[in-house]
Structure formats: C-alpha cells, structure tokens
C-alpha cells in the first residue's frame, strides 16, 4: 500500500499535469485512470526502497508523455466519407455454402415441425403398426429444434458488413439454448401424443423452456460489442445528426423544454422503465395463458389448450404497439 506522502505527491503531480486542461468527462476519466496506475507503480518503487516523494516523481516520469494523446482525445475527429461509401468499401459477401445452409435448413425444420404435428394429431385415429412409429413425431420435432439451433449458431459466426463474427463458444451456446427452448415448446405441443404420458411431456417441455431461456439470458447478459469500427462511427454520426434534427424541430415546435425532453430512438430506449413494465406485463400474460391453457386442456380437451396462447400473442402485440409507439402527450404548461 502507498504511503500518505506518496499519495499526496501523486495528487500534486497529477494536478500540475492537468492544469489548464478542460475538465471534461474524458479528461477526468483519464486522470482517475492515471492515478490508479501511478499508485500501483509507486507501490512497486517504494517496495524497492525508494522514498515516497522520489517514488512518485519517478513513477510519473516512467509513464511517458501523455499530453499528446490527451490533446488527441479532445479533438473532435470528423468522418471522412459518407456512410454509403463506407458501406460499399466494407461490404462483406456471404459465402455461398452459408447461404445454402441458411436457406435449406429452416425449410427442412419447418417441414419437420409440420410433419411432426400432423403425425402426432393423426396418431390417436390410426394406431401405430409397430413400436417405432410413435417416436417419429418426436424425432421430427428434434430435427426442427436442431435445424433452427444450428442455423442460429452458424449465422452468429458469420462476419457481416457491419459486424465481426460472434466468438465460437458463445455462438454455439446461443444455438444450443434456442434449440433446447424450441424442443421444450415442441414437447408441450406433442403433449397428447404417445409414447410418453401427458404429465411427463409437460414436465420435459417446461424444463426445456426454462433451461433454454436461462442459457440465452446468461449468454445475452455477457454479450459484448460485435459492431465494426466504421459501423459504430457511422451510427454515432447518424445519431448526432438525428439528435440535432430532433432538437431543431422540437425547438421550433415546442420551445426549449420540449427539445430537451425529446431524443431519438424508440420509447423503450428513452424510457427503460417502460421497457421493464412491458417485460413484467408480458410475463404475467404468459403465466395466465399457460395456466388457462393447462386448465382448458385438462377439463375441456387438449384441442382447446392452444387457444389462450393465440390470445396471449395477440394481446402481447397490442401491448407492444401501445407501449412502444404511444404518442407523447404535451406537458400541461406547454398547452
């Protein structure tokens, strides 16, 4: 640990070095970052036997000339050419093999899903001629989940014009997570069909859905940037332009108060609380839909079990439209 004298010396030297530098978030960040580095460096030098003042001075000298890049960081670097030109220059074409995989596999998956549901629905009317038949809808559902999971992992590992490929482990994890989630949903869709009893289908389905969501949420939470530098710059330039346009338009329409309130982006970006409310409403809606679906299935008939899910999808879309695109009401003072 550094001594009090060394800490004071670091503080003084940093203040001297940053004298005359405008106190912006960038320069304050840099000052704090340098302080942590100097403290660690002084600890080393003090451990080697240097006096606190001398250790602080030497640590500062060892860092080198940071004023040049400090000035550089303060400069506002404007883009050199338009986003359209940049896109043309950075364009990445997909490999034909990937395009074929990404086209064929979803079709195979969709056909397997349709065949699985049709065969499972026909099973009670036409008893299985042999022991293998009841497994066919299950296998077809697994084919559907595997196809979609594979296409997801495959797509995330592709470089695009604007993004680098996702790290292999994470991409495979996302594919597996989605595959397990779909397999769980598939198990619930097949719950009336042999060879398993109803309760086991429902348990397996619920476990698959929960595990799939957990995997996707865990991987999603640790996601880092994949955007390419040119795409980020173009995006930021566009956002700056859009913000200026908004501010200008809002100033003309409503005066300064409205200009500060209005920002580009959808409502969920501007108001995270609204996004959180939407998430909670959706969770409640689906819990109710699943409960009603199971009750209908048990007491009325499993053909009716999907009805609440259809209603829930419609309600969720209405809720999304209402919450995401709701017109902003003018404040009373501005009326």
């Amino acid at each position: 640990m550094t001594t009090m004298t060394a800490n004071l010396a670091i503080h003084r030297l940093l203040d001297e070095a940053f004298a005359g530098v405008p106190a912006t978030p960038t320069t304050q960040d840099l000052k704090e970052e340098l302080r942590a580095s100097l403290v660690a460096r002084v600890e080393e030098l003090e451990a080697a036997g240097l006096a606190p003042d001398e250790a602080a001075r030497r640590a500062f000298a060892q860092v080198g000339d940071f004023r040049s890049f400090l000035d550089e960081a303060l400069e506002d670097l404007a883009g050199e050419d338009s986003p359209v030109d940049q896109w043309a220059r950075h364009r990445v074409r997909h490999r034909p093999a990937f395009v074929i995989r990404a086209t064929v596999l979803p079709i195979v998956g969709a056909l397997a899903l349709a065949a699985s549901i049709v065969l499972a629905a026909l099973a009670p009317q036409a008893p299985a001629p042999d022991a293998l038949s009841p497994l066919i809808p299950v296998l077809l559902m697994a084919v559907f989940a595997c196809c979609i999971g594979f296409v997801t992992a495959d797509s995330l590992q592709q470089e695009t014009s604007t993004s680098y490929p996702m790290a292999r482990g994470r991409a495979i994890g996302m594919g597996v997570g989605l595959g397990v989630l779909l397999a769980g949903a598939g198990a619930i869709a097949l719950c009336w069909a042999p060879p398993l009893p109803l309760w086991l289908w429902l348990v397996l389905g619920a476990v698959g859905i929960v595990v799939g969501i957990a995997v996707l949420a865990g991987l999603g939470a640790g996601m880092t940037n994949r955007r390419k530098p040119w795409a980020r710059e173009a995006e930021q330039a566009w956002m700056r332009g859009a913000e200026q346009a908004w501010t200008h338009g809002a100033e003309q329409a409503h005066g300064d108060g409205a200009a500060r309130r209005r920002h580009p982006g959808d409502r969920f970006e501007r108001d995270p609380n609204a996004a959180a409310r939407f998430g909670i409403y959706t969770a409640v809606l689906w819990i109710l839909a699943i409960t009603v679906g199971v009750l209908l299935g048990v007491f009325v008939g499993w053909w009716w079990a999907a009805l609440p899910a259809v209603g829930a999808v419609a309600l969720m879309l209405l809720l999304l439209t209402r919450m995401l695109f709701a017109p902003e009401r003018p404040e009373r003072s501005e009326r």
Partner: peptide
Amino acid sequence: DGLVEAYWGDETQGGRRKYYRITDAGRA
C-alpha cells in the same frame, strides 16, 4: 473502435482502477 470495453473497478483505497474487457469484435 469497440474492440475493448472499459468499466471501473470497485476499489475503495488508492485510485479507482479502470478495467478493460476484450469484445467479440476485439477477438476477431
């Protein structure tokens, strides 16, 4: 350029450390 992401550590003594994490873009 989005190749690393920075975040502040929660040190209570000395200077607060700014940590860097490599992104998927950085790995690529």
